[in-house]
Amino acid sequence: MKRVRVDWEIAKRGWRRYAAYPWATVAGAFTNTIFGFLLAYILLAVYRSRADVGGFDAADAVTYVWLSQSMIMTVYIFSWWELAWRIRDGSITTDLLRPLNPQRYWLAFDLGRAPYHFLFRGLPPFILGALVFELRYPSPLDAVAFVVSLALAVVVSFAFRFIYNSVAFWLLDFRGVVTLSTTIVIFFSGMAIPLRFMPEALRELCYALPFGSVIQTPVDIWLGKREGAALVGVLALQLFWALALLAIGQLVLRKATRKVVLQGG
């Protein structure tokens, strides 16, 4: 019971860390809004020549744009450096000496951060988009499934970020790795363009990889594209990737701890 209390405190810290800079949040929401408009019109231009692309119609695509822009910070797609910096400046050694698993710490932190971004950076652009465009809305069941899926997406994204930050234990210059990882996530999650626009083979690959679970899957659920068995299936896949990536993260952490202890950081 006490450990959960610690997690809760850490989560609050995660929330506060971002709530302390309200202007940054406003500016970010503004940027997401602008990009929302741009992408919406770009995709709408595609639908002048076709009615359906990969199972999405025009309304689906526009909804997709606004949902993904709203999710961008909730799921934290862009480069996340916090852990890498702590490793670089050496404060990680004190963290490793504490009786709290760093991965658990940062997970709790991220789970506290995500609701803040969801509410303050996610909702405003979506509401604006909903006012200007005709969007699709989910059935009650799909709405609940969406929330679950979103939470899982946050964990999958976190686990991946944790792994690529850990590179800092071995590489002094990790900026290139972080940039590349971010690139991979942006493209293969469907953030840059809905996976449904991609050629079949590539699309299936992205769905199979953890990246598809991060943006495309939650949106698919919202749009009602996954029903019944398929719905259970994608949620299970998300859960699988969340656990798998967390496990890999733990392994990496163990290796890193050994290295730090032996070499003195």
């Binding site: 770009i42 595609v46 076709r50 290139g176 626009f197 050629p199």
Partner: peptide, 27 residues
């Protein structure tokens, strides 16, 4: 490494254009 990363991140934008035109012949 930096340059390599920069290259790919900007390349995504072009990939998106290619993906779009895989679905339509004119925008």
């Amino acid at each position: 490494l930096d340059a390599f990363g920069s290259f790919w991140i900007s390349f995504i934008d072009f990939l998106v254009i290619l993906v779009i035109f895989r679905n339509v012949s004119r925008l």
